[in-house]
Amino acid sequence: METLEQIKNRAELAAHGAKIDIIVNSGPSQQSSLLIDNEHAVAVAQFLRDHPALSFDFCSNVTGVDWLDRTIKKTTKVKQTVDGVEKEVDQTSEEKISGYLEAVYHLYSMKLKHGPIIIRMRTANRTDGAKLPSLTPVWRSAELQEREIFDLYGIHFRGHPDLRRILMWDEFVDHPMRKDYAPPDDFEWEPTPHDDVLERAKKHYEPRPQLDGAEQITAQKP
């Protein structure tokens, strides 16, 4: 398989005006991905599927990612002159990134037996701009998985043939896989609550008193 750089350059030439970024994954898997702009996504996807040297004819997995608003702190070394002496001083800058939703596609080639290549698309924001072009016209196998993302993350896929909820019922309004989803408060008593279940338990039941008399029971001293 060609390197990600080569694929990116080819795709940008083939789909005029397409803007593709490589998202580097420095983890052990080293699976970097291509971030594709929404306008040319269908053209780029068609190119990836149809080009004879790539022919990614199999979309094995589609999933969603929820990114909340976040700030990234960067530390850079800046040369400053303090009292006539040049020193290197650490300067921290904060970068605010507003939240967005992401759809991630894993592609393989059955014909050439290579892959995977990972492509991503990002929405403008997490509310009214949560829209992406559907890649179901390119890969039929994306249909149910895009419906699942629509159901659980709330991304609207333009051009999807049958976009409706698949796991939850139609009257449901929330998107349960979003990070800020609050489930209905129907807690029921559990003998061993822990972590966030413990937090929910505290709202419904009085916590056990710290001293319940058991600490007075000790082994008899000779």
Partner: peptide, 23 residues
Amino acid sequence: AFGEHDLNPPANPRTYQPPKLER
């Protein structure tokens, strides 16, 4: 019935009462 966030009602009081904790 299918509600917007949960089933409506979440339980039938005729068959189910939440457990009470007695210490």
